[in-house]
Design a protein around this nucleic acid. Structure first.
Lengths: 201, 201, 201, 201
DNA sequence: GATGAATGAGCTTTCATTCAT
DNA sequence: AATGAATGAAAGCTCATTCAT
């Protein structure tokens, strides 16, 4: 099955497999965009680095726009899966929050091409309305329930969501791209700053 | 004196004047990039919307790269000027922090073309090393002095800087581009969350 | 017996059978070319609309050129068959001429895809020398004999042939593609105009 | 003035001048299409044979479609001008008809690229409705007045128009592209056949 | 015979840049 | 300084054709 999407299999949401060719094209595009931006990722190069002919991409995607958008949807699912999994691990809400933050950080840190791609995509005309994403879903419930339990400050959940993603992104970019690498202690600082701000008392 | 740069005049950092034509070109480029991305801002359109001929741009800029980079430098100065000014207003450190955050938010909220441009630029190949910016300067001293005074948590100042900018950006984008507009109360929440996280006791 | 050609079987010229697949491919190509021109009839679409795979066409034709040329040859035979049949029906030469003209008109009127295809083909590089067709054969003899019998004006038979086909085509295209539909009376006008011009006395 | 169109200057309809570059591009396209068809006339070749760069064409035409359509409109005007001029020369209606037919024949005979282009264009998807052209205008009035004067058979004028053009085209193509060249006597035959058919008495 | 994924040459078109005016 | 016609490299994409299955 080539269409990237999700299916419900028992209690878990899993990503359907994507064809090997599609994965190669995704990987190639992701790396090129990270390295050279949308403009520096012509279809010919995406194809070349993926080891396929230029025309082959058009069997899997309607065009460059479609490729970019599917690339985003695919990686968005990866991030959602990380949040979903981390949100289920930990005894306390605080522990679960720390797990979410740390797992996201770890993911971006090891997949800086996704991090860069996301930021390029979200602020580009490909993402027509430039709306932030992930505003619904697990994280929304996580914060809402925390507020109901009196553990989280009464704030619009969407605000908490974007502050969380913003915090992870800022830390990851600082570590990856500046002369200021972050060690474990710095990361604890970063997540504690956020938690202390959003937790009650 | 067309080259955009900064000079120290007594205690103030001021921006040198830029020619009217340059300003028109900047404005045109900023709007086009916001609306259509780098890819949708060809020099001919930048020129057209600025009311000049295509060739004219090349009297002011070496090429498109140069234009983009100068556009960034110019707006970076605007942001620095806002931080510098806000950092000097307020009785307490907390007040000054709130002013900085709010002034930045206000600026991005009223200049979403700058916000979008920044995010596109910083993650693009134009910004070769993708290094976050603003890591030195007024904000650095602001946090450092706060730590020395025991009012700010002992954390790498660069981390505090990116978290601050990240927080402002996240809030501004949420307000501008989502279906979740932020009112004054939400904004107070946002800045308080951050301050509570970085302030001691 | 897939190769399309003609054989003489007794007094009749008959078309050899063509395979069902070939017929489907011909029909598909004819309709696509009529609707979208050569340029809008890619092999993949021809195959798709014929209900076969792209590769299958290459079992029946050497390539697109070959397909087009065979398509022409096939329909040329259909037209020749119509002329041949009509030329044998009618008591007088005039009656037979009217039958030829009317049968041709009827054929084109009911097969506008053939009409359009012919005009596209004959003026295209597929028909390298752009030579008009049907210059020999039944119609040639028909006119020659008419001249010998003193019933037809002494003119180069080829001229009479192209004027006849031109007259039928012009009328059919007027009826099919303009806002000026032709009724039975108009058709009689058309053929009478031609006959009055070529008949003696 | 670059836009090809017509203006009324006193009693004459004249064609506005078109720019030299445009004329070169038209000429190049016409020759290539004649020689190789639409498919064999890529923009790069059209440009090359016109002595301009590929991009230059796009200063004068929106795209290939636009070029083709303007090419048609331009040559259509040339043909209309010929008819208009010839229709005004000659003492009798018959003389004028002969002049129209002969001038048209002469034009196509000397501009076979126009003849071939017309036939390709009219039957192609460029001419979306495939409607025959020239159905109104000078020729329409010519036949209508002839009928009112009792000199021309009572027939739908549009039918007479397409028969006239069809007759000229058939003769020109026979002469140009077959092994049957037409001499002056043949041409007189051709036009007399038509006139005898459409004239009364 | 039949398939359709894969190929890659070649198409139309865009656009940063130049330069004669 | 200012113009904008002209350039031509390079982009996205199509499609006739092949070939492993």
């Amino acid at each position: 099955m080539n269409v990237q999407s999700t299916v419900n299999v028992g209690p878990y949401i899993i990503m359907e497999e994507i064809s090997e060719k599609k994965r190669l094209i995704f990987e190639s595009a992701l790396d090129l965009i990270r390295e050279r931006g949308f403009h520096g990722a012509p279809m010919s190069l995406v194809a070349g680095n993926a080891g396929v002919a230029a025309g082959t991409i058009y069997h899997y995607f309607k065009g460059k726009d479609d490729l970019i958008r599917e690339l985003y949807a695919y990686n968005r699912e990866r991030v959602i899966a990380i949040v979903d999994k981390a949100a289920g691990t930990g005894a306390t809400r605080k522990e679960r929050f720390f797990n979410i933050w740390n797992q996201l950080y770890e993911f971006y840190n090891q997949n800086d091409n996704v991090l860069i791609f996301f930021e390029q995509f979200l602020n580009s005309p490909y993402n027509a309305d430039k709306s932030p994403n992930h505003l619904r879903g697990t994280l929304y419930s996580f914060f809402q329930e925390g507020m109901e339990a009196g553990e989280i400050r009464q704030v619009k959940p969407e605000l908490l969501i974007v502050l969380t993603f913003g915090s992870v992104n800022s830390a990851a970019k600082l570590n990856l791209f500046s002369q200021v690498p972050l060690d474990q202690s710095d990361l604890r600082d970063a997540v504690e700053i956020l938690w202390q701000g959003i937790a009650t008392g």
